[in-house]
């Protein structure tokens, strides 16, 4: 029962992990099942503090919680708030764009010099692809109705078929 309670707490709507997932859902346009389905939620959740530290990551999540609560129940309002409070923010914008980049391409991008002038440059903050799995699960391939190059190949002759929504040529 202790184990079940621990799992439940971990996944409770207001748990830090679930807040990270809800931020990811809002930023990527993919739902939580799609994100969990990549197998990378925990990887990316652990990656952020390992690169920019617990304090910076904590502030980022706090900003999201504040924004999320203010925009709750009104998608249009939330969209505006996310843009203003997070993406346009000099401290949190670069982190949000990196979170989108991770989900879409599996790639962490070195934070911009302007961000580093404020928060310092961290040792692990370099441009890199997290893993072969992170590359292969990049959401950009789903967004463009394709498969990641050199992975998840669609099979012989599939390329001759019309793409989704199109008529045969």
């Amino acid at each position: 029962m202790d184990h079940d309670r621990a799992v439940a707490a971990h996944h409770a709507p207001d748990s830090p992990l679930q807040q990270f997932v809800s931020l990811s859902v809002t930023l990527t346009g993919f739902d939580d099942a799609e994100l969990w389905g990549t197998g990378l939620v925990n990887t990316y959740y652990a990656l952020f503090p390992s690169i920019v530290g617990d304090a910076v990551f904590g502030d980022f999540m706090t900003r999201w919680n504040y924004t999320h609560r203010r925009g709750a129940g009104d998608a249009s309002q939330l969209h505006t708030l996310v843009r203003q409070q997070i993406l346009d923010d000099p401290d949190f914008g670069p982190l949000a764009r990196n979170l989108i980049s991770l989900w879409y391409t599996g790639q962490w991008n070195q934070l911009p010099a302007a961000w580093r002038n404020v928060h310092g440059a961290w040792a692990n903050d370099a441009t890199f692809i997290v893993s072969s799995a992170a590359y292969s699960e990049g959401l950009v391939w789903k967004a463009i109705h394709a498969h990641p190059i050199a992975a998840k190949q669609p099979g012989y002759g599939s390329w001759a078929l019309p793409p989704d929504g199109e008529e045969p040529a």
Binding site: T26, L27, T28, G29, F30, H79, V82, R83, L87, D88, G93, A96, R97, I100, S101, Y104, T105, Q107, L139, V140, W141, A143, I144, H145, A146
Partner: peptide, 24 residues
């Protein structure tokens, strides 16, 4: 493509369903 398309969209602060639709 498609990485360059992602970078250019992020530079314009696109996110969420609008980003996904734009790339698609």
């Amino acid at each position: 493509p498609p990485y360059g398309d992602v970078s250019r969209a992020l530079a314009k602060n696109m996110f969420g369903p609008a980003l996904r639709r734009h790339l698609g």
